[in-house]
Design a binder for these strands. Structure first.
Lengths: 298, 298
DNA sequence: CGATCTTACGGGATTCGTAAACATA
DNA sequence: TATGTTTACGAATCCCGTAAGATCG
């Protein structure tokens, strides 16, 4: 014989109204049915909860003690139901996002600006690491999703293209490039260049672009962090190639940029998640929004 | 459609073993019945809790989240059941005892010495007040029970005699009274007496005893607290009449006592509780023990 | 006698167990 | 093929509502 949540609800209704009849209407139950429910509860606990004469109902001491505990139980059950529904709707939970440097600084904030307010009870962690590290984190379960330029074809990961992130060249406002309407790769060769090092996917893309043109890319300055690049460019030491997703969000006072006029000068940004694994609900909500934002940026 | 504690138990069994068959035997259920229970739970929450191929069962993300909540619920229900049974058995709760000065210092500790260890989860409060105050506290609901010499006959209170508390005279070890085997009231008149003031029930009993003998009681020293009496007697300033229940427990180094040789030199100690009110379970346990201890002291 | 809880009893839903079907490694 | 889950179905149980009975003011 087991205690029932229904019994607790009914008990609380009686304890509050101190009347079987009133509690019955409150519970949408006939009065004898309610009477029986209380009786069963008392039998289950082998305890008398109410002192009842036909004209008066009052809680026994044990009943009073049980009321406190029952109140807590009722709250817990209700709480559990809303929590689990929120969780299933992606309104609650933890979301661990791994993203490459430019995505983390450009695209992700754009998405989270909408996602955050819509999902106030979701704990979000952003891992801004190099692309390879991002994918490794997904594989290890440390991140739910990776947003990187690298398309992975391993069987344990599944990647889906999100948008094309075109390359742009960045330079000071007064720079000669500011006069040009369109910029080609060949236009850059006249100026010293600032670039991130070879560990970066962005750099590898640039290298490939140069190789395709039969040239070698030899930057005048090589750094690890994008922020350092911006400093060098701002100081007039050179120009630098970055991705559109970054410059369209970051505040780049004193700098201007042009999209590189080449059909192949882009990286395909992909979402990567674990294969053979149903995504957490909050992740599907996040993914849906990512696609919307990606579509909106055209 | 409502969630059931049985469903939660079953869910947790499956979540722990990750097998419907094993969980079924653990729950004393046929495997199809268990399968149906899980299905109903999933329908109630409108959420898929397990990812199951016929050969493998695993928790979904929602299921994992639900497991934490369910674990908490299960604990709460179990906790509630044991708590309420402990409470009903008098093993748990709050007990507020009001007792007159000598009872509080003598008899009560004797009872609690046994009661305390047997009921470790009972919060006990002792109100050591004058007898009238004790009865008033019971009437006001501030105390569950009063142990006093005063027998109350008001309709809202019900008193039951517990034991006879005989009067004794207390004196220093070297006092002449130490030579006597029996002491009568008349024997005391030769010595200065120390007594508590007229607000005390003890003092009123002494006054009555003297009146019955056609004498007036005129103590040499009158104080409010028993502890002060003991100090004065110890200093050799006089002898004092107290109750047997007090001296048989208190440590009275350097003092001796004799029972007063009179059939009427006692007070009838009573328990008093509210009438028209079922006593809290812990109180019945306490009362039972009081009667046992009272019977044992003869 | 009127209001309220309890008991009695029949119908309907829920839950269970057995047996068969089904799906994966 | 062997193991483990789901479906199908009949039986027992539980739960509810109506009607009658009991009790207190």
């Amino acid at each position: 014989m087991n205690i029932t949540f229904r019994q607790i609800e009914v008990f609380l209704a009686v304890a509050r109204s101190l009347s079987f009849s009133q509690a019955a209407v409150a519970c949408h139950l006939s009065q004898p049915a309610l009477s029986a429910t209380i009786k069963r509860l008392e039998e289950t606990l082998s305890v008398k909860l109410f002192e009842r004469t036909t004209r008066q109902v009052s809680l026994t001491d044990v009943g009073l003690e049980f009321q406190r505990l029952a109140e807590h139980l009722s709250d817990s059950v209700l709480h559990t139901q809303v929590r689990i529904k929120e969780y299933a709707a992606g309104k609650r939970g933890r979301l661990s996002i791994a993203a490459g440097p430019s995505i983390a600084a450009g695209f992700i904030p754009q998405v989270l600006k909408v996602f955050g307010p819509q999902h106030p009870d979701v704990e979000i962690r952003i891992h801004d690491e190099l692309s390879d590290t991002c994918l490794e984190m997904v594989r290890a379960g440390k991140a739910d999703i990776a947003l990187t330029p690298a398309m992975h074809t391993d069987s344990d990961l599944v990647s889906v293209p999100l948008f094309k992130d075109y390359l742009v060249v960045l330079f000071p406002l007064a720079h000669p490039l500011a006069q040009k309407k369109t910029v080609r790769w060949s236009d850059l060769q006249a100026y010293p260049q600032v670039a991130v090092n070879n560990r970066s996917n962005l750099r590898q893309t640039i290298n490939e672009q140069y190789r395709a043109l039969g040239a070698d890319f030899a930057p005048a300055y090589e750094v690890a962090q994008v922020a350092t690049m911006l400093g060098l460019i701002h100081a007039g030491l050179g120009v630098g190639v970055l991705s559109e997703s970054l410059v369209e969000r970051a505040s780049l006072d004193g700098l201007a940029h042009r999209k590189l006029n080449s059909r192949s000068a882009y990286r395909r940004i992909c979402t990567t998640v674990l294969a053979h694994r149903a995504p957490p609900p909050v992740l599907t909500a996040f993914l849906t929004l990512c696609k919307q934002v990606a579509a909106a940026r055209g």
